[in-house]
Measured scan of single mutants.
Amino acid sequence: MIINNLKLIREKKKISQSELAALLEVSRQTINGIEKNKYNPSLQLALKIAYYLNTPLEDIFQWQ
Rank of each mutant, 00 (worst) to 15 (best):
M1W: 06
M1H: 05
I2Y: 12
I3F: 13
I3Y: 09
I3V: 14
N4D: 02
N4G: 03
N4H: 03
N5F: 05
N5V: 03
L6N: 00
K7A: 13
K7S: 09
L8N: 13
L8S: 15
L8I: 14
I9T: 07
I9K: 04
I9H: 08
R10H: 01
R10C: 04
E11C: 07
E11T: 12
K12M: 13
K13Q: 12
K13D: 03
K14G: 14
K14V: 05
K14D: 13
I15K: 06
I15Q: 05
I15M: 10
I15V: 15
Q17F: 03
S18Q: 14
E19M: 10
E19D: 14
E19Q: 12
L20V: 03
A21I: 02
A22C: 08
L23G: 11
L23W: 14
L23C: 09
L23D: 11
L23T: 08
L24T: 14
L24G: 03
L24S: 08
E25T: 10
E25D: 12
V26R: 03
V26D: 03
S27W: 03
S27E: 13
S27R: 09
S27Q: 08
R28P: 15
R28T: 15
R28W: 15
Q29R: 12
Q29F: 13
Q29M: 13
T30M: 12
T30W: 08
I31L: 13
I31P: 00
I31V: 13
I31E: 01
I31S: 00
N32G: 07
N32C: 08
N32K: 13
I34S: 01
I34P: 00
E35T: 02
E35L: 02
E35A: 01
K36W: 08
K36Q: 15
N37R: 07
Y39A: 10
Y39L: 14
N40I: 09
N40T: 14
P41D: 01
L43R: 09
L43S: 09
L43F: 12
Q44G: 13
L45P: 01
L45A: 03
L45E: 05
L45R: 02
A46V: 05
A46E: 02
L47H: 14
K48W: 05
K48T: 05
K48P: 01
I49K: 00
I49V: 06
I49S: 02
I49G: 00
A50L: 02
A50Q: 05
L53E: 00
N54K: 12
N54A: 12
N54I: 05
T55M: 08
T55G: 02
T55V: 09
P56H: 06
P56I: 04
P56E: 08
L57R: 04
L57W: 05
E58K: 08
E58F: 10
D59N: 10
D59S: 09
I60K: 00
I60S: 01
I60R: 00
F61W: 05
Q62F: 06
Q62V: 11
Q62E: 10
Q62M: 10
Q62K: 13
W63Q: 05
Q64L: 07
Q64Y: 09
